[in-house]
Design a binder for these strands. Sequence first.
RNA 1: GGCGGGUUGGCGGAGAGGUUACGCAGCGGAUUGCAAAUCCGUGAAGACCGGUUCGAUUCCGGUACCCGCCUCCA
Length: 470
Amino acid sequence: MTTIRLHNTLSRTKEDFVPLDPSNVRMYVCGPTVYDRAHLGNGRPVVVFDVLFRLLRHVYGEGAVTYARNFTDVDDRINETAQKRRAAGAEGSLEDLIHQRTEETIAWYHADMDALGTLRPSFEPRATEYIGGMIAMIQTLIDKGHAYEVAGHVLFKVRSYPAYGRLSGRSVDDMIAGARVEVAPYKDDPMDFVLWKPSDASLPGWESPWGRGRPGWHIECSAMSYELLGASFDIHGGGIDLQFPHHENEIAQSCCALGSGFARVWMHNEMLMVEGRKMSKSLGNFFTVRDLLDQGVPGEVIRYVMLMTHYRSPMDWTAEKARIARGALEDFQSIVADHIGRSVSPDDADPRIIDALADDLNTSLAIHYLYDLAKKRQAETLLASLHLLGFDFSTLQDATWSADDVTLTLSELAAQMTALRETALTTKNFAPVDALKSALIAAGVEVRMSKSGVELVPGPGFDPAKLGGL
RNA sequence: GGCGGGUUGGCGGAGAGGUUACGCAGCGGAUUGCAAAUCCGUGAAGACCGGUUCGAUUCCGGUACCCGCCUCCA
């Protein structure tokens, strides 16, 4: 069996991956807060961990991997949106408006992530459906002396967990010395973080032993991962920006409440950059996955660009990379065209590609082997390998030019041009051929002439409407 | 201020202590009515300064610069 090696943030080294239970490999990845469209940066971990999910399924079996990714659907930004809608005259209670907002956002998220060729996780828990588990976990933390109630809040007592800071490599004292810690007057210690906070009538809330309120962000993932994957599981993933404080706090909560090892391997993807800076909400330099799809960038191209860079390196999104990705995918597509739709087994994938992925998801090296397979015209192996990496060409075709009538029009034009050209070769009058060629190029069609005839391929700026008069 | 990551050819981006990454672009050739596309070939690198070594871009130390986290974020 293939040995998978993964970089564990906890140890800061690559380790052989040994699942707790090979018949049920368990992975949890922090999902989105559903208050708006996912930006491109949100897409990176989804793609990265989708590759890992596919690899694990390949190695351990499709039914032997459980993947949970949450939706955070209780959040102040969601509340704000709902409140704004109500202020703008929207019908319904605040709870209804919040529910509408999160449902609509989840539907967007699914559509956008599906377009990137990512598989749906085994579980997609919503925080609001696990409030009971959160309350129980918070109560356990209070009972064990790791949390305290004050002024309607419940706070985690960071000093009660000596290992706090292990994941992120910080000491509590250093963090306090670094200032910028939120100082709320009711905290025993500046580092303590909130597990439960009170809600007034204008906010969603749930009854609890500490009054009507809502959970803090960190406790959500601890409660959901526990209920779905158990007190100990194999892999916990997310963006590197979540390493602290979110993941550190999850560890503190889960380990203190459950007395277990919690997640064994922690994996963090690096950030997605734009113009050399992190794409983030606060910098306002983001665009959404949907923006790109609407601009005609196929989801598979986005996926390919993401896989060009190793997940632990920062990745810059550029139009140039999208162009290269598209070119590569179109090359691969033309090579495997005759095999698309046939059943392919991941077992037929190039073993070098499996090994590359098994070596801490070296997708860049995997792509190197794709080129090698393409060069050698090993169509079946190439297709199986592409499947393993999550490319099935459905979105590439949908997003571009697969409409039958367009294909038909192009083949008619190609035949027409071939005829014109044959005539021209004897008459030596190439003007009619050149006129047609110019018109096709103007419509964004790539004209490929050879001895055998003319081939017309839609190019990057292809506009079917401009074929009308030809 | 504390912590973490990075610096590879024109650009993107991997591996390996000694042997071609690869892709894009360039250059040369084949092909072509002209082009494009395609095919073949090809030059080019590892921030800086030390150390270890027979040998380092690859290991170790230092310097410089860049990025991230410490505040909602994937």
